[in-house]
Amino acid sequence: MNRPPFTIGLRAALSASAVLAVALLAPASCRRHDQRLTLLNVSYDPTREFYADVNKAFSAEWQERHGQPLAIKQSHGGSGKQARAVCDGLEADVVTLALAGDIDAIARAGLLSADWAAKLPQNSAPYTSTIVFVVRTGNPKGIKDWGDLAGRGVQVITPNPKTSGGARWNYLAAWAWAEKQFGGDQAKIREYIARVLGNVPVLDAGARAATTTFAQREIGDVFLSWENEAYLIAKEFPGKTEMVYPSLSILAEPSVAVVETNAKKHGTAAVAQAYLEFLYTDAAQQLAAKHFYRPRRATVASTLPAIDLVTVDRDFGGWATAQRVHFDDGGTFDQLYGTKQ
């Protein structure tokens, strides 16, 4: 006969853990709201450092004005992926995504009203950015402008436009350049885009993953990057890369909105609205400039150079159209990706 103490011990352990399991699961699934006021900001990839600063500033101000402690939680990832998660039930109080199209997707899921962009100044985009090139030190492949991306033997790093907002801006900026370069000749534009896509060795899901591919893993000759991310690369990997401003780029308007359904449920509508309005204040605009976004307020100084920028609204008929023509299933990206190697 084997030792009975072991048997008893194990039996006790098993029943104890079953009790533990129930005890842990029950309250965890029932308790939704914390007593403390919390706000969940679901954002895209390159805003991590910016919102870390904004959250600190805003919660201090909120506490001072309302005497109420406020915790702001962050979730980051590819903009399209994040929008998808919010539609799937990630209960964001506010979304601060890379482009209006992703917030439109959340509106279509019924979580906020379709006219969300009109609820805050400047199309609900409190700061802007653009797309620039990052190359290896000394620019060994001599990359100066969009045309050079289609060259033979040039490896281009850009994330997947299906999941990443930045990648969609990259794609449209390249398209805008080609449109101008080839005088609107659709066949030539498509040929050019297909050749650039053929030079992309790997499509990462988000801008940050693509940055890691280029800067950390040292894959590729040129990285199509958010302007602010490019400055961050220069800071994190000093002396390894340089920035190149192309002749033309796109005005990227990362948009923000309160996710009305969630905010109402959490009782956070007022603080969520105040949070987004805070982004337009001098204090937040200065933080935007500090993190190399282009501030909207003329009173806030920015060191970023002025360049020729096309816009989605003027040159692509707005995000709804751009999304349908280029990025939805069967759009130009699907038609052109993988056709040239």
């Binding site: 699961l25 965890a28 699934s29 029932c30 939704r32 998660a85 799937d88 039930g89 990630l90 209960e91």
Partner: peptide, 9 residues
Amino acid sequence: DLKVIFALP
């Protein structure tokens, strides 16, 4: 009012 995904359960 139960939450499963994007939460502990």
